Simulated assay, not measured.
Amino acid sequence: MAGWLTTHVLDTARGCPADGIAIWLYRVNGNSHRKIAEAVTNADGRTDGPILPEAKFEIGTYELVFHAGDYLRRTGQVTAEPLFLDQVPIRFGMSEGAHYHVPLLLSPYGYSTYRGS
C-alpha cells in the first residue's frame, strides 16, 4: 500500500479554517533539505489535494513549513514586527505506506500539531 500526506490549518484564536497560507514541503536527509511541493490553503483551510500524493510518496523524514505570518497580518491578529510566529516548521517521519495527516492548529503566539486521520 502506498502512502500519501495531507494537511490543513485551523486558526484556533478565531475558531475557523485559515485560508491563503502557503505551505512548502521539504524532504530532509541529514542536514539537506530539498523542496518537493508547495500549496496554498483554501477556504476550508486545506490544500486542494494531497501535498504529497501516492505517486511521489517515499518513506523518510519530511518538513512542512507553514508561512503563517502573512495570514496573521492579513487577519489583523498581529502588528508588531518581527512576528513571534512567521514561518512554522514541523519536521516528522513517515515510516510506513499509509495516509499521514499533519495539521497545524495556529494562533498568533502558539501552535500545535498531531498525527491526524
Rank of each mutant, 00 (worst) to 15 (best):
R91L: 05
H8C: 03
L72K: 08
L25K: 07
F84I: 11
L105V: 03
Y71A: 01
Y100E: 02
T113I: 07
S95D: 15
G30I: 03
G76W: 07
I23Q: 05
R115K: 08
F84D: 06
E63R: 14
A68I: 08
W4A: 07
R46G: 05
Y26A: 04
F57D: 08
Y114G: 03
T61Y: 05
P103S: 08
P17E: 06
E96I: 12
S95W: 06
L106M: 05
L106D: 00
W4T: 11
E58Q: 14
H33Y: 11
P89E: 08
D44Y: 14
H99G: 09
Q87V: 12
E54D: 15
G110C: 07
A68W: 00
I21W: 03
I59S: 12
S95N: 15
P89D: 09
W24E: 12
L104P: 00
S117D: 14
L104E: 05
R46V: 06
G76Q: 09
L106I: 10
W4M: 09
T79D: 12
A39I: 08
V9G: 02
R27M: 03
P103H: 04
A80E: 13
G15D: 08
N42P: 05
R74N: 13
T61R: 15
H8D: 05
N31H: 13
R14N: 09
R27Q: 11
V78P: 00
V28S: 04
H33I: 07
W4D: 12
V28P: 01
L72P: 01
E38Q: 15
V102M: 04
P103L: 06
Y111C: 04
G76S: 11
I36P: 00
G49A: 14
T79M: 09
G116Y: 04
P108C: 04
E38M: 14
L105S: 04
N42A: 10
A2E: 13
H99P: 02
F57T: 08
P108V: 10
V28N: 11
V65H: 06
D48Q: 13
I90W: 01
Q77L: 13
M94H: 04
R34F: 01
A2Q: 13
Y109M: 07
A2V: 13
H33S: 09
L72V: 07
P53T: 12
D48S: 13
E58F: 10
K35C: 06
Y109H: 12
G20E: 04
F92Q: 10
A37D: 12
I90E: 01
I21R: 02
N42F: 08
A18E: 02
Q87G: 09
A2C: 10
L10Q: 10
P103I: 03
L105C: 10
P53Q: 13
G97H: 11
H99E: 14
L83M: 11
P17R: 05
V9S: 01
V9P: 01
V102E: 02
D19I: 08
A98G: 09
E58T: 14
T12H: 06
